[in-house]
């Protein structure tokens, strides 16, 4: 087993108990998804105040909800197309709200350089999701590029909990730009390989 695989397997133990509790209480997964967003807004507020450790802890709690909603939907057999749409829409909100917290913080510190870096990172974060969603309306899958949402969230938590947000922002920014480029290249290649008129 790999290092990251082992961390994932260990993290699953406490999450299984939470999933079982939510299933026993029959909490609707869409409610869990929304709760995650609301808690993430709290993390954004903490980021905006410069309270990074608090933000990191709140982010962990918020993302537990985000992680378990799909599993609870599966266990309760209430998976739906709307649930998937709701989940990915709320994910975008969660992403953006954290960046807004950071933008507020850096603006209040008078650091326009980091306001700009955070805005560019936010832009490419949104582009990362958009390029995949749009590509998958044209080709089967577009799962290339390293910096996807789970990586971003874990990095955000590490940045907050160890007060290394600037380095984390640089990493997310550069790798998000590369991920967007990967997806554009992949889609271009995939569409070029298709017979003419196959994709609308």
């Amino acid at each position: 087993m790999t290092f990251t695989g082992a961390i994932g397997a260990i993290s699953l133990f406490p999450l299984r108990a939470i999933i079982r509790a939510c299933v026993a209480l029959r909490i609707h997964p869409n409610v869990l998804t929304f709760t995650g967003v609301v808690i993430n807004a709290g993390a954004a507020w903490a980021l905006a105040q410069g309270r990074f450790v608090a933000a990191g802890i709140i982010m962990i709690i918020a993302n537990i909800f985000d992680f378990i909603d799909g599993k609870v939907a599966h266990e309760l057999k209430v998976q739906s197309a709307f649930g998937a749409f709701w989940d990915s829409t709320m994910d975008r909100l969660s992403d953006v709200v954290l960046f807004i917290g950071l933008i507020y913080l850096y603006a209040s510190l008078g650091r326009t350089d980091y306001v700009l870096l955070t805005c560019i990172t936010l832009m490419f974060t949104v582009m990362t999701s958009y390029t995949r969603a749009r590509a998958e309306s044209l080709v089967d899958t577009c799962k290339v590029g390293f910096m996807e949402r789970p990586e971003r969230i874990v990095l955000f938590m590490i940045g907050a909990l160890t007060n290394r947000m600037a380095a984390v922002l640089w990493v997310i920014c550069v790798l998000s730009v590369v991920t967007v480029a990967d997806r554009i290249y992949y889609t271009w290649r995939a569409l070029a390989d298709q017979p003419r008129g196959a994709a609308a």
Binding site: F52, L109, R111, L155, G159, M165, A166, A167, W170, V171
Partner: peptide
Amino acid sequence: AILAFVWLTPPDWLGDPMA
């Protein structure tokens, strides 16, 4: 590699506003 960059790069080099 990412964690090494995040934890080993001195905050002063990046002009970190908070560290």
